[in-house]
Amino acid sequence: MDAIDWESMWAPYDDETYQYVLAQVGADDVVVDIGAGDLRLARQLAQMVRRVYAVERNCDLVQRVLPLLEPYPNLVVINVDALVWQLPDDLTLAVLLMRHCTRDHFATYVKRLKQAGCRRLVTNARWKMGVEVIDLGHNRRYDPDRAGWYACHCGAIGFTAPEFASITAHSVNDIVDVVLCPDCILQAGIDYGEYRPCVA
């Protein structure tokens, strides 16, 4: 079973997931819905925000939903692979509901969204199940001295183990969003043992 078949078993998402996404937007937002599918979410977003770019590479799926778009003049449908599409520079928020998204693709989306000036990403692609909001503007570097979970903009997630005596509910349950995690440093070919990040 390939990734697209696997994802179709799970899509569309449940109403709770869509309601969580909709709760993150405001009237002035310009949103890109990456992998918009049948535009179920994009149409709801279009009722709430200034503009929605719905990017979907499946041509057959896009053709089937085009007749439903007349009531949404602020919904722009783009039939292309989002990994190569030139992102507009007026984005404020991106939605990436794509559990089959690879870590490399996730990192590419994050990098390109940051370059386009997008401020937030609502996604389930990093943790694969729960939906989270990622602040694309922060630059808190990974701190090897902080015990607990971290999630990096490269898509890596991990747990820095504390001394057993210092384990607390907070260190087990709190997740810190970071950049330049150990995986990033290894990918760059740097010996992590020699790398001491400046913690912002």
Results as ranks from 00 to 15, higher is better:
Thr92Ile: 09
Glu163Tyr: 12
Pro12Ala: 06
Pro71His: 05
Ile190His: 05
Arg40Met: 12
Gly148Val: 03
Cys101Lys: 01
Arg40Leu: 15
Val172Gln: 10
Leu97Asp: 08
Trp6Ser: 13
Tyr150Cys: 02
Thr168Phe: 06
Val30Pro: 02
Glu132Cys: 05
Val62Gln: 08
Cys154Ala: 03
Cys118His: 01
Thr168Asp: 04
Arg196Thr: 15
Ala107Phe: 07
Ala36Cys: 10
Asp5Pro: 00
Ala125Cys: 11
Arg140Phe: 09
Val21His: 06
Leu113Arg: 01
Ile134Ala: 09
Phe159Asp: 07
Asp2Pro: 09
Val52Gln: 00
Leu121Asn: 03
Val84Cys: 09
Val199Tyr: 01
Asn139Val: 11
Gly35Arg: 06
Arg50Ala: 15
Gln115Thr: 14
Tyr53Asp: 08
Gln187Val: 13
Glu56Ile: 05
Ala151Pro: 00
Gly158Gln: 04
Glu56Thr: 04
Ile78Val: 15
Asp81Glu: 06
Asn58Gly: 02
Tyr150Gly: 02
Gly130Met: 15
Asp191Phe: 07
Asp191Lys: 02
Gly117Val: 12
Asp2Lys: 10
Glu7Leu: 14
Tyr142Thr: 02
Asn173Tyr: 02
Thr123Cys: 05
Ala54Val: 05
Thr102Ala: 12
Ala11Trp: 15
Val110Arg: 00
Asp183Glu: 06
Tyr109Leu: 13
Asn124Thr: 04
His105Val: 13
Leu69Pro: 08
Ile34Leu: 13
Gly37Glu: 08
Val110Ile: 13
Pro73Glu: 06
Lys111Pro: 00
Arg99Ala: 13
Leu66Ser: 09
Trp149Glu: 10
Pro71Glu: 06
Tyr20Arg: 12
Asp38Cys: 06
Gln19Trp: 01
Ala156Cys: 11
Ile157Gly: 09
